[in-house]
Design a binder for these strands. Structure first.
Lengths: 249, 249
DNA sequence: CGCTTCCTTGATTTATGTCAACGTGCGTGG
DNA sequence: CCACGCACGTTGACATAAATCAAGGAAGCG
């Protein structure tokens, strides 16, 4: 199953017909190589895209050339979900691995809203989750020290991989470099390296050529005081579910 | 005119009937004193609220007691816009001035989506803007030094006041303390004070008992490399406007 | 009047940035 | 095949931004 469907299925309101609609929406996919800029900063948003496989980053650049990663995009995440509502994007999107993206015109998304109120709500829910990820990022950068920031980020990414349907074993290894960690967390890559080495020496993570591996997620959580956000299964209020079920017709 | 209407009117798709609907949605208001916690962290979201007058903060707290402000809420901003989609809120909301809030059940918002596709899109647009504010906040905290962070925050808040319909003169003074600035930008209040004093001595801002005043917004922008996001007037693509106009019926 | 909150400033410590150098793997092109 | 450049990781020495500790002043408020 595609990761978007996996995420939405976990909130418990998806019917088979909804899954079919989502399959249709993502029928056109395209492969891109790592390093590809899928969305330019201040550029037009032409299409809505959904990450099917691979990882990407959403970033912004300051006038002095400093690049800040605002969020990582994993399978199941959207690029330009509100594309129909905004002429331009403030942030850019770059692929950090080879990736497969599902692409469709922004307008098709609005048709989907008409077709199924449940799905419309589900996609708003995705958007709301994005906002939570940004809040988590602010918490990390604003309130934690460098080592805790790294632990916090790694734990969040793992949770998100699991939510997108990755097998628990696969969700331990992620295709990120120390440089990316540094750019995401507002620290220098030298300092990021030192903190990573510290975590590695404590046996909490492992770095290899294909990425970074979490060895002790539980301990990582404890050193950064990670608070998991409200679980998806219990998150959608029952009253809303019934409402949406009715209005679909 | 209420600030929410002012913000939406500036994007150019509001008809008189839409304004009337928004007026009706905000017919029930309630006054709260400064310091009031309107939404508890990890608490249930009972209602959707819109700030009519006054300022608030959205915050999160780490296990070690550090409070991080993730966003400021100004007149026209929403609290719990996606209330129907999430059982609990991850962040808390506290009023930093006396405030008037419009309150209505989350479900009423979904009725509104059915009533006017234009308004539904407009409210998604508000949600999308919130996301941009969070991205700005990440950029500030992650990529700028303390003084620039302060300048950047102040400029953004002023822009947002203007967008909500404040008179240009009023948009110069904001009801925030140095402690709040520190909590928002991830710096100590002592350091925030030193940076503020530096800006004050350069004649860029002024601090008085009723708040902080921007004297030289232009220069503040230049010292932090502030990039204004795409303007609202040109932001909603024409194609979407026409689409929405039709589907309203 | 005492309490609280906010602002202010100085002295000192600490976390993190910067600069510099070097190793490794890896793809590219000769 | 080798030589080369390039991106990434690693480590040390040093510089600096910012945190912490400490103390006090001013304004609001019961």
């Amino acid at each position: 199953m595609r990761p978007l469907q996996a995420r939405l299925k976990s909130i418990g309101i998806m019917l088979d017909e909804d899954i079919a609609i989502l399959d249709r929406l993502q029928r056109r996919t395209r492969d891109y190589p790592a390093g590809c800029i899928v969305q330019r900063e201040k550029g037009r948003m032409e299409a809505t895209r959904i990450v099917v496989t691979g990882w990407a980053i959403r970033f912004r650049t300051t006038p002095d050339g400093h690049r800040q990663i605002v969020n990582f995009l994993l399978p199941g995440d959207s690029i330009g979900l509100y594309g129909a509502l905004f002429e331009k994007s403030d942030s850019g999107v770059e692929l950090i691995t080879d990736a497969t993206l599902a692409e469709f015109p922004c307008a098709e998304l609005m048709d989907l809203f008409r077709e199924s109120a449940r799905l419309g709500a589900a996609l708003c829910w995705i958007g709301g989750q994005d906002e939570r990820f940004l809040e988590q990022q602010i918490l990390r950068i604003g309130a934690l020290n460098a080592t805790s920031r790294i632990a916090h980020l790694l734990v969040e990414l793992q949770q998100r991989m699991l939510a997108a349907g990755a097998a628990p074993a696969d969700a331990m290894t992620m295709p990120i470099t120390q440089k990316l960690i540094a750019e995401a967390l507002g620290i220098s890559h030298v300092h990021a390296n030192r903190c990573c080495r510290k975590l590695e020496k404590r046996g909490l993570i492992e770095t290899g050529q294909q990425g970074l591996t979490l060895l002790e997620p539980t301990e990582l959580k404890s050193i950064c005081g990670y608070q998991s956000s409200a679980g998806p299964a219990t998150d959608l209020p029952e009253a809303s579910l019934r409402r949406l079920g009715r209005s679909t017709g």
